[in-house]
Design a binder for these strands. Structure first.
Lengths: 311, 311
DNA sequence: GATCCGCACAACCTCCGGTTGTTCACTAAG
DNA sequence: CTTAGTGAACAACCGGAGGTTGTGCGGATC
């Protein structure tokens, strides 16, 4: 199926006749006739009844028309998504199912007209470079550059502290605990597969391990959250950390448990990073929205690494 | 922009390299290379970073990818909408903003996976012919054929009686009435533009006029509901009937009033028509849904024409 | 440094999709 | 009934988009 043919179809449906549609599209009537004929051949149905005064859509044509318009709209948005001027706001998140995505969903609900592209860059340096070059507009991170201060042209603001909870299977020793302390976790195996060395999460857990003497295993590639949940559910000796705001597809019948962690409660300090010179209107709206719906952070009794960005 | 190029882009993003994508698409690597190059030229951005081991999407490519996938999904749905076998359920309604559309929205909320195409055929005969030929699957109507009984191969079931209300501007004599009777309307001008002679609505209002001696003017073409609302708002001598379930884009600051009509309350008797031999699974689901969420009809104190379909 | 792998470039060819010119069906006016 | 007008389809032609095969080139691996 050819998008030009679809565009022609919509033009004919709009104009009510081939000739006018041809004029609108700046092509000849014969070309319109050919395009429609080709589309009809592709789809296997007649789309227009040719009348002496023009053309009117058949029932199939009427059913196809809204789909055609939707197709053209989506195509337009797709082009706009990479168009340099006035493209959608591009925001990087650490995890598409994490707390940052939830905040962005809230923002999008509050501003339904705002075009938004969410992507995952994984590496901090790539995100910072992309922000500085204007390729992306903002990033939800806890740190700008590991071990280095925030570059001067970037700004940041803390948005939410996400508590980490312990995810265990039904056979785990702590499965039925109402809550656990970090100290109590010292003897247990914590499994965090797919954590790349040098990544933001790795730095976070390095600090956690150093301070509380936990045992965290980063072995094995990340096969996705489903595989992780399956393994944790079936292995009594394994547990993993899970952000409380993570939206999981919760498998049925696995008996998985989420145990709150306290004394102190480890929280992941999400912050928004952006370039001071970025004038994208939606960026200002996003910052305003985040400030207005601001969740508490730095609450007493919580723990976070020392290197979090200011804001 | 070419859909084949978009499909190729998605295949390369999926495969991680041009060669494998080419194999998946059963074309040569050079063709993939050309398609991607053409797409990049069209969009004006580089979509892949070519690495020694393949290709990985640039940030622009990552932003474009979900749009590309959406585009392909919509294209697939568009094709399916006219595909003879297993196409979406096609339902005809009298008015895209009327009560039937509301029922279909409810059905779609209850069955989000069901593909549904809603269209407006206007003429009863066209709808009946389309149902009998299988071109559409169901129609919300009050009558099958004016003055004739329901054809034997069609079935029908009443689904909802929609009360009609009087819509007036702020200056109308009845604007501040809490309700009016049909008898009280006898002296007032009721304006129903764009009502085609022989249409279902025309038959309805013919009966209403004959029984209660109203004055209904069907003059002028239908310029859409916005124009209708504007005119009614500004003309104290004019009022019109409006279905209580109609979803209007309510203009601000016009002072429009909806006055209930009673003694008796005229209701529009919506019914679902379908072909007895139609085996579309979604049709059965729709009938079940309508039966389960069944609104009251034939309530005492209401009025409807005598020729409504059985069911 | 030799080899492999994967993408880009070049040359070539087919056919898609545009154009112009013409025909055909239907309507409306004389 | 004839005639002019309108709008879509058909025919012939032509340029270029997009496929193929063949080859070049750069980075990674050993």
């Amino acid at each position: 199926m050819d998008l030009e043919a679809v565009r022609t179809f919509a033009a004919v449906a709009e104009a009510g006749q081939f000739q006018k549609a041809a004029a609108d599209l700046s092509i000849t009537q014969q070309a319109v006739s050919k395009r429609i004929a080709a589309l009809e051949r592709d789809l296997g149905v007649r789309l227009f009844d040719r009348t002496p005064r023009g053309a009117e859509p058949t029932i199939d044509g009427r059913a196809f028309l809204p789909h055609a318009r939707e197709l053209l709209r989506v195509a337009e948005r797709a082009v706009a998504s990479v168009h340099a001027g006035r493209r959608p706001l591009r925001v990087d998140v650490i995890n598409l199912r994490g707390a940052a995505s939830g905040l962005l969903r809230g923002f999008h609900r509050a501003h339904p007209g705002t075009e938004l592209d969410v992507l995952t860059l994984l590496e901090i340096e790539a995100a910072v470079t992309a922000i500085r070059s204007g390729t992306i507009d903002a990033s939800f991170r806890a740190v700008a550059m590991p071990g280095r201060p925030l570059p001067e042209d970037l700004a940041s603001v803390r948005v939410v502290d996400e508590p980490l909870q312990l995810l265990t299977g039904p056979g785990h020793a702590l499965a039925d605990a109402r809550s656990v302390t970090l100290a109590e976790l010292a003897g247990h195996r914590i499994w965090m597969p797919g954590m790349l060395p040098g990544s933001e999460w790795a730095a976070y857990y390095d600090d956690l391990v150093a301070e509380f003497g936990l045992t965290i295993e980063a072995t094995g590639p990340n096969f996705g959250s489903e595989a992780l949940l399956d393994t944790v559910a079936d292995t009594p000796a394994l547990a993993t950390f899970m952000g409380a705001h993570t939206r999981l597809v919760w498998p049925a019948g696995h008996g998985l448990r989420l145990v709150p962690v306290a004394d102190p409660a480890p929280v992941y300090p999400h912050a928004l990073l952006w370039h001071r010179d970025n004038l994208h209107p939606a960026l200002a709206a996003l910052r305003t929205h985040l400030a207005a719906t601001g969740a508490v952070h730095d609450a007493p009794g919580t723990w976070r690494p020392r290197w979090v960005v200011p804001g």
